[in-house]
């Protein structure tokens, strides 16, 4: 031990590892081990309290060739993900608006950002009330304006359920995207626009040739965060629709939950999780590659 502390370099190493270890331990126990265990599980037959048996690709075959619910959940996840580009376009428009020199712009910024830090379960419950067909505000307003005669049971309808949860999801994240894009906007030096004005570029040229290219890292950061959110939006779906009606709002994440904790098919759920993990990894890599490998960075010389 005394030897270990003699050299400056080894003293530094001990110090570094001492600081790293607690975080690494948490990471190992809550991330790495479950992930490895999950992969092992997906190749096994296993239910709680029984020894595991090797199953090979059995669960994967079932999932890909015989389980329609999996494909519905996958398709729904893809549809749900389309909320991200919509949210980004909205966030961009809002960011451009609140970047103007308008009265009370910090108030607007705060109001638009406000939903993001709210607990998602609370967001889900509020929106469930808004959508309610007998006491919901949305139906009340639509009926008062004479747009509809009969109340629409948004969350109980096959036609509206998916769109309705997507609206809630977009509402919740748009403020966060707006802040990211606003930060990107404010990092673009004013002189660039002045140079472009003198160079003869009109407002829409300046947007397409300067603003948008320089916002690319911010936008792709939003894309990645949006993809993550759509893969992990368990709480929102669970509180609003529970995946229903039928499978109308079933996402991969809620399907995994149901397979394991409702149907006790932990081994099967593990296989779905592996597929979801791989899809997610692929999308994140593609998004980061498209962002030039530096999502979130502000690309300004100097």
């Amino acid at each position: 031990m005394a030897l270990l502390f003699r050299k400056k370099r080894s003293r530094e190493l001990v110090f570094i590892w001492a600081l790293l270890l607690p975080a690494l331990a948490v990471y190992l126990f809550y991330r790495v081990i479950p992930l490895v265990w999950n992969v092992v599980l997906s190749f096994s037959f296993w239910s709680p309290g029984k020894p595991a048996k090797f199953a090979g690709l059995y669960h994967y075959e079932e999932m890909l060739f015989y389980d329609d619910a999996f494909w519905v959940a996958l398709k729904n996840t893809a549809v749900f993900m389309l909320g991200t580009p919509i949210a980004i376009v909205l966030a961009m428009a809002l960011a451009l608006l609140v970047d103007q020199n308008i009265r009370g712009r910090s108030l607007y910024r705060t109001l638009i950002f406000l939903p993001y830090p709210m607990m998602i379960v609370a967001v889900g419950i509020v929106w469930r009330w808004l959508y309610n067909d007998s006491v919901g505000l949305i139906n009340y307003v639509l009926r008062s304006l004479g747009i509809i005669d009969q109340p629409i049971p948004f969350l109980e309808s096959y036609d509206f359920a998916m769109a309705s949860v997507m609206v809630a999801a977009i509402w919740q994240i748009v403020g966060f995207f707006m802040i990211i894009i606003l930060t990107g906007l404010q990092n673009i030096p004013a002189h660039l626009y002045e140079a472009a004005v003198i160079d003869g570029a009109r407002a829409h040229h300046r947007f397409w040739r300067i603003t948008l290219p320089l916002l690319r890292p911010s936008i792709f950061l939003c894309v990645i965060l949006g993809v993550i959110a759509s893969f992990t939006s368990f709480d929102l779906i669970y509180t609003m629709t529970g995946g229903g009606p039928g499978l109308a709002t079933e996402l991969l994440i809620t399907y995994i939950y149901k397979s394991s904790f409702t149907l006790s098919k932990f081994d099967y759920a593990a296989a779905v999780t592996v597929v979801m993990f791989l899809l997610f990894l692929a999308l994140a890599l593609i998004a980061n590659r498209l962002a030039g490998g530096d999502a979130g960075k502000v690309d300004i010389a100097d």
Partner: peptide, 30 residues
């Protein structure tokens, strides 16, 4: 853009996402 002037700024104001060629060609496109 119609004053027929060109300006050089203190911090250069070069478009960071464009090459030197594109920077110089930018105004001519318009």
């Amino acid at each position: 853009r119609n004053r027929d002037i060109a300006m050089v700024f203190q911090d250069y104001a070069l478009y960071p996402h464009m090459s030197v060629y594109e920077n110089m060609a930018f105004s001519l496109h318009y």
